[in-house]
Design a protein around this nucleic acid. Sequence first.
DNA 1: CGGCGAGTTGAGGACGCTCAAATGAAGTGG
DNA 2: CCACTTCATTTGAGCGTCCTCAACTCGCCG
Lengths: 256, 256
Amino acid sequence: IKTIAPLKDDLPCIACTPRLCSFVHALKQDVSPHHVGMQRGERLECFTGSCMKFWTVVRGTAAICTMLRDGRRQIIALSGAGSVVCGLLADGNTPHWLEALEPSEICEIDFTPLAAELARDAAFMRTMTDMMHDQLVQTSQHLVTLGRLDSTERVIFFLGRLAIQSVRQPNSGPAVHLPMSREDIADYLGLNAETVSRILTKLRKSGLITFLNRSEYVVPDMTKLERRLPLPLQQGNSQVMGQFADGKPDDTMVQA
Amino acid sequence: IKTIAPLKDDLPCIACTPRLCSFVHALKQDVSPHHVGMQRGERLECFTGSCMKFWTVVRGTAAICTMLRDGRRQIIALSGAGSVVCGLLADGNTPHWLEALEPSEICEIDFTPLAAELARDAAFMRTMTDMMHDQLVQTSQHLVTLGRLDSTERVIFFLGRLAIQSVRQPNSGPAVHLPMSREDIADYLGLNAETVSRILTKLRKSGLITFLNRSEYVVPDMTKLERRLPLPLQQGNSQVMGQFADGKPDDTMVQA
DNA sequence: CGGCGAGTTGAGGACGCTCAAATGAAGTGG
DNA sequence: CCACTTCATTTGAGCGTCCTCAACTCGCCG
């Protein structure tokens, strides 16, 4: 755990899309964001109660997980680099946590001491709304996936979405990196690990997916992939509250 | 479609938990909330783009629905009396709509003309955040249901949650009203109608559920019901941004 | 080389879906 | 009040999908 110098040349807070850091500086208070390194399987548990902690995935991949009494695990959402998770997401009944699926780096900001002040900050609340909205859209789509797609469609959808996100990354080659184990994929898709494995070999043999190794693949024909799905792979650009902020007061606070 | 007098004696906006009406009056503008009656199956479609419409279910039950290319339907969330749905929830890819599952009355407010102004209103944005948060918690739990519960557990969970919500209603007797058809339940739980029917008769024969008729039932022993589930039925009280608002400026705006 | 964990593959079975028919409930018109 | 229509629901038979359990392979590291 080390306190971060907000704008270093390696991986600055630019990765953090909602720019939470800007509120830290704006308020001139010692809400210290700090980076945490996490190994695969490590967890951050702060989903109880009302803590206003935020975790931005700077590097790696993390998952919002929950577990039932008998040990069944469900991955509710995946958080790739740049996405922000907030501690308010849990329901307080079943245990929730943020788990690194591969070696990751998380930037943690705890706004709790400033909560009352930020509740009166329209720009901050707009950011919160946007974050919640993005998460909600993602979760809703995932819900449809679990409710109405069969196992093969789920895996195809998962691989396709991952591939699309991958090409948007700046330093990506043609290969897509699979950031998680078969069991993690299964827990994300509501399947079990063996089924995922079987489907992956089926997709490999059918030529829809080409695997370079166990954790890297290429989609030779994205159109063909999409034809196997009853819903589009491309994500529409979600427009939210941010668009209504005419003056854009946040931008004035961004450093550099 | 009739414009509503905000505080009538029959079913006033008190039912609207987030009290959206208060923002209408605060801004002294003609954002006219009006009530819409809906028959079973009727739809409100405004999930495209960025309209800032809100629908509060005043009476009845509505569902946020989506449909895949081949006609598979998924009910993402149920909206009972008092809950608010907002047009921002859709992802823009697949069609989304709000559908009445039984004869319902919806209060519609379109804040679009005031969007820019409201974006600078911290109290309004806090309300938005709270709404999004509530929806997100609900959707996440639903997602776990679809991902990790088998069909019987899903139905039990559904009936149990409905029963708990029912006793909180003011005018409820011991019987729980089932506000939707078997097919609607199936589309909510990711099953098909026949399976739902089979499970209901199984639960009836096992004595877990007593049916008064096709749409009313009693849970003789809620504890026994909960023992069949790997997760608690009771919903923890979610605490969100509202708690941080010290002065509670909204309350001063409430009429009466 | 041996051990370990992740992944793959196979056999068998349970669960949930499809298709089809029967039953029930509610409304309409004679 | 009763035939008749219509639609939702129930029930049954058969089957496909996905899970469970188990054996086996592969890659990695000591």
